[in-house]
Design a protein around this nucleic acid. Structure first.
Lengths: 261, 261
DNA sequence: AAGGCAAACTCCTCTAGTCGAGTAGGTGTG
DNA sequence: CACACCTACTCGACTAGAGGAGTTTGCCTT
């Protein structure tokens, strides 16, 4: 507490006390008086400093937490949140020249950035296509799809979950149905099957994560997710895959190139 | 209350009471028992139903609010949040054929979707380039830029703020310095000045809004924003504009096309 | 020196109230 | 009939406690 001089409350302000306290701590973080990982004063210390009830302090801390500025650790304290290394997704990441190197894009990129990539929770099944997937794959009602779901991690930290849907008429009986889809991933397999990939369309949304997503991605409170739906089209214009991925928003910067023509 | 049957608490569960209550209400919303704009039971009603203290109910409601599922209105009640109409940004939105129609992309798109577009808070100034902008514009240190900031609204609802930066060496003395940048917007002006636009690069981040952004975009609590930085390149490869925009994430779906070649 | 244990400290959940301020609806007066 | 006012109901802010559970630290035993 001695090390962190916080202002006093302004009794004339009509700004709520808990907001004033949140403002003070936020400013301390923003001006660099508190760094990533630093512990902020405990609830008891803040109570004493401001002379208010504990719930008021907790309300203030709650504000910061929902802004994603801090994380509370039970029994340890409240800390300034540190951000994971950011992964930049370039718009050429699915270029064939990358795919032909025989490794999936995720592995290559992560290793190049000096991280240890891994993939877990791989599950493959077959089911009727959900309606939004059926629509994107231009499937008739009730047609089945192969569903591949998995989770991507960097240095053991989960950063992304992905679920791919491929028409059973294409993928059934191929290596795509195996947990290990082989070198270059499912896009390489699709090309081997004669579906020369032409283009991808990605739709991006941003929202707060659901509870399962918070768990699967070990998200800090107040961190939104990117929800990205990619549809892969073969050279004849036929959609051959839909990939539904959820990414921790503070682990990613997405980058795209648009033509002006 | 009578109309909305909520389950009882599970006394054996080790899930916190306020989380169980939040779960109940969330499920009611998700299964459609409560629709957009519906009022959820008041704090007093929920207290009675569950037999818990008011703070516990408030904690539960806080969870839903921070998930963006509900909004509280002082003196009226807590309501299921209704989402504004979504604007889809297609990857060809800056194609020259659109620009040549003489209207800015935003106006055309919004009118086509049956909305009333408007732009306000237009401010133009000149200043030293911030370092990240200078980097993207490949400017030498200290070089000046023309700064154009504005806010976009649909049916009077703010959906996006944008700040454009153009090198003073290009834009000074042109209509770009006027609040009304003329038909087709600044991209049309740049082409008239001989900078044939070639491509754009967009970087997309997602995060929780700052306080000023909550105000400017009238954001509901718990709604993240897209932070998009677009750099426009002329045919000779020279960057000619950086546009920094913040968009309400529930008013937008971004869409991009990627080549597979 | 190593290991076990207890105390101190941390945040988490919850109770039971107070006062305040915004909203909506009904009632009574002009 | 129109308007002002009152009242009941809503959420917002805050107080002042309780017991619980996870973490750290240092002391004491072995």
């Amino acid at each position: 507490m001695a090390e962190l001089p916080l202002p006093e409350l302004d009794p004339l302000s009509d700004r709520a006390v808990f907001r004033q306290i949140a403002d003070h701590v936020r400013e301390a973080i923003e001006r660099g008086a508190l760094h990533e990982g630093d512990k902020i004063p405990s609830e008891a210390q803040l109570m004493q400093h401001y002379g208010v009830a504990r719930m008021t302090i907790r309300n203030a801390l709650q504000v910061l937490q929902s802004e994603g500025l801090t994380v509370a650790e039970h029994g340890r304290g409240v800390f300034v949140r540190s951000r994971p290394p950011v992964r930049r997704l370039a718009s050429d990441r699915f270029a064939r020249r990358h795919r032909e190197r025989g490794k999936a894009a995720f592995i290559v990129e992560t290793e190049e950035a000096g991280g240890k990539p891994s993939v877990d929770s791989i599950k493959v099944s077959e089911a009727a296509a959900p309606s939004d997937v059926a629509e994107r794959l231009e499937l008739a009602g009730g047609e089945h799809v192969i569903v591949r779901s998995r989770r991507y991690l960097i240095n053991g930290q989960p950063v992304e979950t992905a679920v791919s849907y491929l028409p059973s008429s294409i993928a059934q009986g191929t290596q795509i149905e195996q947990p290990d889809s082989g070198p270059g991933g499912i896009y390489a397999r699709l090309e081997e099957l004669g579906f020369r990939l032409d283009r991808f369309v990605e739709e991006i949304r941003s929202r707060m994560p659901f509870r399962e997503e918070v768990r699967a991605l070990k998200l800090a409170p107040g961190v939104p997710v990117f929800h990205l739906i990619r549809t892969a089209y073969a050279a004849d214009g036929r959609p051959v895959e839909v990939c539904d991925t959820v990414m921790s928003s503070d682990a990613y910067v997405l980058s795209y190139e648009l033509p002006a023509r």
